[in-house]
Design a protein around this nucleic acid. Sequence first.
DNA 1: AATGAATGAGCATTCATTCAT
DNA 2: GATGAATGAATGCTCATTCAT
Lengths: 191, 191, 191, 191
Amino acid sequence: MQVQKDDVRNKIIASATEEFLNAGYQQSSMRSIAAKAGITVGNVYAYFGGKAALFESIISPVWESLNELISIQVDPTEPITLPTIRQITDRITETFLENRPQFLILMNKSAGSPYKNARGELSSLVSRRLYREILPQHDPLLADAMAGAILEGIFTVFNHCGADAGRLRTLIRELLGMLLGGIPCKAHDPA
Amino acid sequence: MQVQKDDVRNKIIASATEEFLNAGYQQSSMRSIAAKAGITVGNVYAYFGGKAALFESIISPVWESLNELISIQVDPTEPITLPTIRQITDRITETFLENRPQFLILMNKSAGSPYKNARGELSSLVSRRLYREILPQHDPLLADAMAGAILEGIFTVFNHCGADAGRLRTLIRELLGMLLGGIPCKAHDPA
Amino acid sequence: MQVQKDDVRNKIIASATEEFLNAGYQQSSMRSIAAKAGITVGNVYAYFGGKAALFESIISPVWESLNELISIQVDPTEPITLPTIRQITDRITETFLENRPQFLILMNKSAGSPYKNARGELSSLVSRRLYREILPQHDPLLADAMAGAILEGIFTVFNHCGADAGRLRTLIRELLGMLLGGIPCKAHDPA
Amino acid sequence: MQVQKDDVRNKIIASATEEFLNAGYQQSSMRSIAAKAGITVGNVYAYFGGKAALFESIISPVWESLNELISIQVDPTEPITLPTIRQITDRITETFLENRPQFLILMNKSAGSPYKNARGELSSLVSRRLYREILPQHDPLLADAMAGAILEGIFTVFNHCGADAGRLRTLIRELLGMLLGGIPCKAHDPA
DNA sequence: AATGAATGAGCATTCATTCAT
DNA sequence: GATGAATGAATGCTCATTCAT
């Protein structure tokens, strides 16, 4: 006993992150997280209050970071000099680069968890921005669809791009150029 | 007998479809599927081998239909007169219109089932096509990202657009115009 | 399988009643109830929704019966021709004779269950009656103490008196004669 | 060292007494006892062998005191000049006044502990005394019932009467006057 | 063909207790 | 003497699946 406390904590976090990323929140079991970490179930509960709390410990930094983005309220009377889509996606990209697996779990594997709506909220944000800045004359559902498309495109790069942050940023830039290039709108600067 | 049997079979299928669409594969329970169908659990197993087989029975027609799309191997020496992206998305749209709930289940609610990779495979198909026809000079991962974006955009429309097929087709057309509009490629016809 | 459903149900009820009576609600385990009944845990849940529901199934008849007693509201302006203490204890006695183990569980072994206050409520009823009819000039706490004493005395007889209902009724009568005999009150008829 | 040790010991005792009184033996947890005492779980085990031993440390003084009462064997040939019921209840009252929480724990919160039968044994003592002195011509079970009633009445006063020892003694006296007043026996002095 | 009782392995969680430090 | 990390068995409960009828 009496292994370094941080060591065990880190082993649990690592094991749980792996499990959540592979299987998703719902399908991950505390038993197998504990086993993979090389400790007993009870001990996981000594470090984290439970499955939800363990998930939150892993996910909350990313969530906080994204929440700042989501909670920025746009003043509807202001001109559209506020963060553009590209600024939002840049911020998302940086958040991902700082917490890769956590970000992917939050966006793709949080079904059944208290964070299950995270992706939807982020998508709503992008959709509202798109609608105000780019597509006001269109069906709002089109903005939703564009927002979903943009996020999915980005997340696909996130999922499959390796450790090379430069390549990743380039890909995201190219991707957005394509995705937003077809939007007939003066507000968009393809440069 | 045969008539009776089909009746029961259809009731199970209807009940399970509803359940899978609402709760997803993993969270659906055989008990409540049977209850909703008005028959007993054991009898569901008499008609379908189990949860996975029941899911397959519901999903396979859509899956087969999409598989035709997927299994078409593009001869690399042929000119690019093969189905273009727009043809693929049209086909996807028609498949959806013919089998709405099944399609949505397959694409959005199959986590944990044997079909969990269906969406990924469809995305791969679109990606390969995009790569050959439109983006050969780019990073293949960019094609993956574009494919993911296109599918997510389409599925968002599928998910939220009501019964009006005309509006749906219009939205999909507009969406693709935007998504593909930024692609610097002679193959794309933005009209 | 396919034993008589009622047979199994009865075996569970018998096993649970024995367990609750021996160990109390809190200390009884669904596992051991199932084992004692000769079936598996899961099957107990097929018959009863859970531990609390199983307990309720056993206890509710007695509880309903006592509740009628408890819920009778005394009109404060009426003369005290309403059920006297002796009428209440008679009713309690009859309820016990109809459901012996259930009654004892409800009164002595319900700690931790949804019925944990049953004895207290019954005691309150007796106390209020005592206060109105017999002891209005005394400290209300004295009425509480008398009520507790009377009930405990009765329950002691219930606990240790065998199957002879005649002896039991005689004992209760004698007991009440003693317990209420010292009360200096015209309302009491020791005959 | 010794001073320090007693300090810690006392803190544990105080914390555990509070916990046992609030939650009962079974529902009290070593973790929260240790936490409330401001020390670690392991250290509780250094001072007390375990939950049962800790409970015993708290309860044994009261228990010893009551045991003296219980262990006095009545010589059947002696005349009944031995402690009368009233003497016993006086002794019980004094024991309670000297160790209020411990007494209440022993009598009302010891379910599941090694002392779970304490109340029953005390009740037996009172019953035997009652039988010899007052009720020899009756059913012994009647003496048991009277003993239970007397104790419950007293304990109800103990539980709900505040810090005023005078009021408490008065209430107990009045209560016993009532409870024993109906006993047709020369040994009883209703004054 | 149909029933639904029964199984048994699984789940998240709790907690008295131990023991290396 | 003191720590608190670690254990492991227990708890209530769920559910896909089986099979005697």
